[in-house]
């Protein structure tokens, strides 16, 4: 499968120049206003999130809709501006970039979206769609543009290239559309690829094809990839590390294998329980998943945000104090009071 990447826990602490992007105490809050001016409150979409992403590494951010993963993604694309905190890209803070520097940063980050049909302008041909980023980023020579378009299409295996250049998005299948989206994300030769649920709108039979393609591109170009999904079952075939996000916070960060074999946070446990595997026995019993729904990000619960749904919630602790980050196991961090100090007991449900 994947080449051995410098992410294994046995390796020495990574050098700073190995880190492509480093997110520090990031807050993305949106102001709620009444009548367009009076302050009502904040939507705390991303609240105090920190992580590092190394060159050539793929991470997955897993969470349900409304957990803030899209806001985090948009902030990394600088479609949103951080409210607080820093985003350090190749050693410099990019959160307030403007003009040419902003354009440069954006050329360094590719974006693969969830709904391929919506992600492609329906009135442009494939050639035009791929030409746009090049035109915008100053590739003046037509021959060079065409050469890079061809190359990009070849890389996503839309061949023979001539068959696709003049097609409109609606003439392509979902899988082909997503390949065009990927080709567009790759055409500026970015260092980071942000993939927002890249396969959730596709049919099961083509999902794997797209995930493999992304994996292949990641390895060939030594890309860093941030893979955003709600589907745990696809993560293991794609990324090294996984971040679980709940209500604006990263609640657990570790390697995918460790997460599957030893989930720490009760929310992670719930996600794993909730994920179905094709098995006829499923129909015979109910799933033990926490009831309720993720909280509002305007008035999140006090203390741990998962505590109202948590089977292991401890009164006067979880509902009162926000859990700090613990590292009960090497390279496996979790924001949960269950792992406070020498208490390293696993939740009972696991």
């Amino acid at each position: 499968m994947s080449a051995q990447l410098p992410t294994s826990p046995t390796e020495a602490p990574v050098q700073t120049n190995d880190i492509l992007i480093s997110v520090k105490n990031l807050r993305v809050w949106f102001e709620l206003k009444k009548w367009g001016f009076s302050h009502v409150g904040w939507v705390r979409a991303v609240d105090d999130v920190s992580f590092d992403l190394k060159r050539g590494e793929a991470i997955a951010i897993v969470g349900e809709s409304g957990c803030g993963k899209s806001s985090l993604m948009k902030t990394l694309l600088l479609l949103n501006r951080p409210h607080q905190g820093q985003i350090i890209f190749q050693g410099r803070d990019i959160s307030n970039l403007k003009g040419k520097e902003l354009k440069w940063y954006r050329s360094q980050v590719g974006f693969v979206q969830q709904n391929p049909y919506g992600a492609l302008p329906p009135f442009m041909t494939v050639r035009r769609i791929l030409e746009e980023p090049l035109l915008i980023n100053g590739v003046k020579a037509k021959a060079e543009r065409m050469e890079r378009i061809r190359q990009a299409l070849q890389e996503v295996a839309l061949t023979p290239v001539e068959d696709f250049l003049n097609k409109y998005p609606h003439m392509l299948s979902g899988g082909q559309q997503q390949r065009v989206v990927i080709a567009r994300a790759m055409i500026l030769e970015p260092k980071l690829l942000v993939a927002d649920e890249p396969v959730s709108m596709l049919d099961a039979s083509v999902r794997v094809e797209i995930l493999r393609l992304l994996r292949k591109l990641q390895q060939e170009h030594n890309l860093s990839v941030m893979y955003i999904t709600h589907d745990l079952s696809t993560v293991r075939f794609f990324s090294e590390r996984i971040f679980v996000m709940y209500a604006g916070k990263l609640v657990e960060q570790t390697h995918i294998k460790d997460l599957l074999s030893n989930p720490l946070h009760p929310y992670t446990v719930a996600l794993l329980t909730g994920t179905s595997e094709p098995d006829a026995a499923n129909a015979k019993h109910l799933k033990e998943v926490p009831p309720g729904e993720p909280p509002s990000l305007v008035n999140p619960p006090t203390g741990c945000r998962f505590h109202p749904r948590c089977p292991n919630a401890m009164p006067d602790l979880c509902d009162a104090k926000n859990p700090p980050t613990f590292e009960p196991l090497p390279n496996h961090v979790v924001d949960c009071w269950l792992y406070d100090g020498d208490r390293t007991a696993y939740p009972e449900t696991s």
Partner: peptide
């Protein structure tokens, strides 16, 4: 179709 389903605890690569 069955082979294309990624499985949580199975190391086998799904197919397409």
């Amino acid at each position: 179709l069955m082979a294309s389903v990624p499985k949580l605890y199975d190391d086998e690569q799904p197919d397409f």
